[in-house]
Design a protein around this nucleic acid. Structure first.
Lengths: 267, 267
DNA sequence: AAGTGGTCTAGACCACCAT
DNA sequence: TGGTGGTCTAGACCACTTA
């Protein structure tokens, strides 16, 4: 059904790439929802008419991209945005001693607005397109830590209201996924140093002019389509941003079984 | 020779892990040096007495960890720290428009010192152990951008002198590798916002008190043994730090053939 | 043309999880 | 005990590089 010279995929590209694309299409179409188990590998292999090794190679890439999660003896699952997962992949702030904890979130504002030039570019929407603009204050150990400004296109989140947003039972990315079928699978962040203006200083309980870390994040779904543009201002007196690169994608994978995640990561 | 229940490796751990360890030992021992080609996969497979698929799985992990580089039709090579590689994996500063360029480096000072408590902890050496302390000023487009303070243990770099360091024909990590046999394969970075003191401000050509991005990097070799502790202060008026996470380890791999690397990375 | 890595097959068997 | 993913084999053939 996929076979050589079939539709959509480039001639000569390997089968497992075509299988991967088919799986992603099925995922994007909602054939299996977040948290669901996929059919067994043997079943999928025969469905796509490839050997099991080929099927495993396709699934393996999706696992490395954090789109699927494999658990030996149980099955292969669509990654779900629970708290642990969000903390692990998208929250890069740790205390100076290296420990990581859940922040508490306070919603400061939720309003309708129109995209300015920068936001429009980041979200790949026209300038002036309707957006939601949300501001959150995150605290750790009771102290103000981080000020978030989140911008999302209204066209992607029809029917979203302040009440729905405020009363979400889980993380923001879980809300995107469960209520709007949008799975955030990747993010790109740019960081710079800036200073606190008067309003920000008051909210973060620092002196005006204090140095703050500014993080601009674009969160993306399948095929790198942008979903959210987020600007964070962080007080780095007690906490810092971490970025561990090189090897150890393997380690991240090993920590996957979400329910068993340890919440303190040693320096 | 490796086979079930053999030395060193845990019982029941898969063959390919044992093969990987054997390869890393051979690498660490210097059996193949940076830039060298390894024997063909078929040869290695018979040497370790495993099927080629198993050998490929071991090599594949080392490739993902950037320790080896595969090139179809040519062979498998020990990753070498040329300029492109260093820029790609360890230099995370880009211009605001997203383009990346080579900085010029000016050596400010090179001196012998003793490790303070923080440095000793980061380098896993005793407090007060002998170290080299090096300061560099990096410029981009002729303008001062970044002030580096590099600390390395003298015991790891016997015979290093200011002249050798200053006259290195390539990158700093290339020098570590070619002159001392130490390959940096991984780094962990912590970021915070700070302000410029008078001396730093003068060097970076900014106002005292200006916000600066502070990066603390620990660079590691095989088995996560620390090699270098580096503290960078960055003027982020025109440039910023980037961190792209999630998928696309695959993309990094695709960009591998070093000589063909494009030097401008679009936003 | 010879040599390299890359893909793919069609199984067998092992380790783990649920029941 | 039956089902799942994980490992491993012993090939065949393809795609790419170099001489």
């Amino acid at each position: 059904m996929i076979r050589k010279l079939s539709a959509g995929t480039p001639v000569g590209s390997p089968f497992y790439k075509a299988v991967k694309v088919s799986l992603m299409n099925a995922l994007a179409k909602g054939e299996w929802k977040a948290g669901d188990a996929l059919p067994a590998e043997r079943v999928l292999a025969s469905r796509f008419d490839v050997a099991i090794g080929t099927l495993r190679k396709a699934v393996g890439e999706l696992v490395r991209e954090h789109i699927l999660v494999r658990q030996q003896g149980r099955g292969t699952f669509v990654a779900a945005h629970d708290r642990d997962r969000t903390m692990f992949y998208f929250f890069h702030i740790v205390r100076h001693d290296g420990t990581k904890e859940y922040p508490t979130v306070e919603l400061l504002s939720f309003r309708r607005a129109l995209a300015d030039a920068q936001t429009a570019a980041k979200l790949a929407i026209p300038k002036g397109a309707p957006v939601f603009e949300i501001r959150n204050l995150l605290r750790l150990d009771g102290r103000p830590l981080l000020l978030d400004q989140i911008v999302i296109a209204r066209s992607l989140f029809p029917g979203l209201t302040k009440k729905i947003f405020r009363d979400r039972p889980n993380t923001i990315y879980h809300l995107y996924q469960s209520a709007f079928g949008i799975s955030v699978v990747r993010s790109a962040e740019r960081l710079r140093a800036t200073t606190a203006d008067a309003a920000t200083a008051a909210l973060l309980d620092v002196q005006p002019g204090s140095p703050l870390l500014e993080i601009r994040r674009v969160a993306m779904t399948y095929a790198d389509a942008p979903v959210e543009f987020r600007r964070s201002l962080v007080n780095t007196d007690r906490h810092e941003y971490f970025s561990d690169l090189g090897a150890n994608e393997a380690l991240a994978g090993a920590a996957q079984p979400a329910a068993r995640l340890s919440h303190s990561i040693s320096a």
